[in-house]
Design a protein around this nucleic acid. Sequence first.
DNA 1: CTTTCATTTCCATAATCGCTGAAGTATCGA
DNA 2: TCGATACTTCAGCGATTATGGAAATGAAAG
Lengths: 106, 106
Amino acid sequence: MEMKDIVIQFGALAQESRLEIFQLLMTNGETGLFAGEISKNLGITANTLSFHLKALQQADLIKSERHGRYISYSLNIEGYKSLLKFMTEDCCKGNPTLCATDVECC
Amino acid sequence: MEMKDIVIQFGALAQESRLEIFQLLMTNGETGLFAGEISKNLGITANTLSFHLKALQQADLIKSERHGRYISYSLNIEGYKSLLKFMTEDCCKGNPTLCATDVECC
DNA sequence: CTTTCATTTCCATAATCGCTGAAGTATCGA
DNA sequence: TCGATACTTCAGCGATTATGGAAATGAAAG
């Protein structure tokens, strides 16, 4: 993972609406939610939501799938894991004592 | 941790210079580095660096200590861990299968 | 006390971001 | 084919962010 990609990932999560979207999708598994459901759920207008979804998708944090005229969005767990990997692998380079506890994912 | 604090933390890391600063401090342990050393190391002018250090500090990701006329900056590991905690604890709410592997920190 | 050095704060500017309304695209149902 | 529905893209705007130069602060050294 390049530094720039990591910056894009952090940037995608550095906004309240987008973090809410991401959290919501966290709890909605493989099937995810349709854009309209997210919109209703979080009270974000369609166009603004579309803008944020694009940012999250470009950051490799979510993915989309068309079902007729609906588009479902769901977590891209691999992208998220690569961010966590970056955050934890570089954590202790040169200084293991600083970061002594394990962080568990699930 | 509040949503807004998390957004601030992600925002602090969502910038190339700041991510570089943070990575550099990762590898410099408890003692950290003086502002001037960081500046020289990364080629960032003093005033701009100061601006970025402030952002990282306000996000609880680094801390500072004055030594005479030098100021050392070092990792605030607790703040970083709380971010990792947020990212991993909420990860599987409602969907453990999505996020099955452990992420190790050190 | 004055100078010097390390760093921060202030100010101005250019770039980016987030939001909105309006228009565009894609799909479905009649 | 026509209209309705779901969603995206575009254009424009106000707000925030990143940066650099200049001035200010804080601490040491002479």
